[in-house]
């Protein structure tokens, strides 16, 4: 005789219930790859600045360790994505729409993030590269208008459709709760930073950093409440 859990949980259910943890692994592994690749690039740039030439034993060992870390993290991503794909067989209609919208949004976000890497986006001595999106330096007017159009016109349409059609009430509740945490973090944190700056205890408040913290807290609580 099967027990209640066996009767009520299919393989797809069981796998889907671990998708939050898997998604977290994918995000952390992705960040790990970026940071390790950045460390390798920095190491090679420093080596080049010191005259270049053949790497010593320590340098080769360092690069091998970094390569092993990147390979391990890439394997972790592949494994977790494969399991997430397998659990998607039993997705409900809403879940499929939700998943497709999030994938689409990530693709568009990634394309926007990579835009400065492929086009000359420098203005005078301003920053270039992917970090331009989050920097304070000037950017080409056309690019600024494109980003504003996406953020102020396209984003609200996608958000409206997502709220109305893709998510259910449990996710809406998780999203609202994320908003409460983020709002309180902002209401407490931003004035605190401003006052500490005026008192000479902290650097000047950074609007982009505050926005990123606000969005990160909102997203983290939303995913935690959705998948916990």
């Amino acid at each position: 005789m099967t027990n209640l859990k066996e009767r009520t949980m299919t393989d797809a259910d069981e796998m889907a219930n671990n998708n939050g943890r898997r998604m977290l692994w994918v995000i952390v592994s992705g960040l790990g790859i970026m940071m390790t690749a950045g460390a390798v690039a920095g190491y090679l740039a420093a080596h080049e600045a010191q005259g270049g030439g053949a790497l010593g034993t320590a340098g080769i060992v360092t690069l091998c360790v970094c390569a092993a870390i990147i390979t391990g993290l890439a394997f972790a991503i592949w494994r977790n994505v494969s399991k997430m794909k397998a659990s998607n067989e039993g997705l409900t209609r809403r879940e499929k729409l939700n998943r497709n919208m999030i994938y689409g949004f990530l693709l568009v976000g990634g394309a926007i993030g990579l835009l400065p890497a492929f086009y000359d986006t420098s203005v005078g001595n301003s920053d270039t590269g992917p970090a331009l999106i989050f920097a304070d330096s000037p950017m080409p007017p056309v690019m600024a208008l494109m980003l504003v159009f996406f953020w102020a016109v396209i984003m609200p349409i996608i958000a409206w459709f997502w709220h109305k059609r893709a998510i259910d009430e449990q996710e809406a509740s998780a999203y609202r709760e994320g908003g409460y945490y983020a709002a309180y973090a902002f209401l407490i944190g931003a004035p605190m930073w401003w006052i500490l700056w005026r008192g000479g205890f902290a650097p000047e408040p950074d609007g982009v950093a505050i926005f990123m913290l606000f969005a990160s807290i909102w997203t983290a609580v939303w995913l935690w409440k959705k998948y916990r």
């Binding site: 009767r7 219930n17 996710e171």
Partner: peptide
């Protein structure tokens, strides 16, 4: 809910489809 679902041999996804919610919602309830 879990017992009622078991009596019909439904998975969480099946119940989610009937209620037009996600499996996460069924599981959370």
């Amino acid at each position: 809910l879990k017992v009622l679902r078991a009596m019909r041999s439904w998975s969480q996804a099946d119940l989610g489809e009937h209620l037009d919610v996600s499996r996460q919602a069924v599981n959370a309830i």
